[in-house]
Amino acid sequence: MGALLTRETDLRQSQEEAQYLTFMLSGEMFAIGILGIKEILEYGQLTSVPMMPAFVRGVINLRGAVVPVIDLSARFGRHNAEVTRRSCIVIIEADSDGNTQDIGLMVDSVSAVLEIARSEIEPPPAFGAKIRADFISGMAKVNGAFVIVLNVDQVLSVDEMTLLSEASGPALATPS
């Protein structure tokens, strides 16, 4: 399971507790390790990129750098997220082939930063979860309820997403 965590969290594995950012998506609570997170932005001016799969929401200008934004809800195979007053973009440093790339993750709302003890996190269920099993790094118990801890490397795997857009691209590209 250690391999599923980011390198930074590996260093902390020996420690008892790690910090997680929790956020809401379609009424469900999710958590991601805090070490890969660079900043959290209010959902704002976004340019959509045509002919990309639905989960690529578009690109934003992050202080002069063009950063892609992933619609997490659509990435889970659900409908596109609605933009609300509380919508946020979480900027995450993702690793792809040794190169780091900033990727934005669009979520419904950001909740809190929690310290969760490793003992409180259970391995992902083999079946029964509503999202892909390889997206789940573990199930954390927070105040008696389960929170899904996401495997960010897998959710934001640039290689996989590139393959997906390649598959969906030509279909959209041929005009009716």
């Binding site: 001016q45 340019t47 990129v49 045509p50 002919m51 990309m52 690529v56 578009g58 690109v59 934003i60 200008n61 002069g64 750098a65 063009v66 892609p68 792809s96 790339q101 990727i103 640039v158 997403m161 590139t162 857009s165 390649e166 691209g169 590209a173």
Partner: peptide, 26 residues
């Protein structure tokens, strides 16, 4: 501004730029 690997399969768009108002244009 290059669009990055995620958009490498995109045809018809070669890159992006940033407009005076801060928005990204393709």
């Amino acid at each position: 501004k290059p669009l990055g690997k995620l958009f490498s399969t995109l045809r018809g768009i070669s890159g992006s730029t940033i407009l005076g108002n801060g928005a990204v244009a393709l």
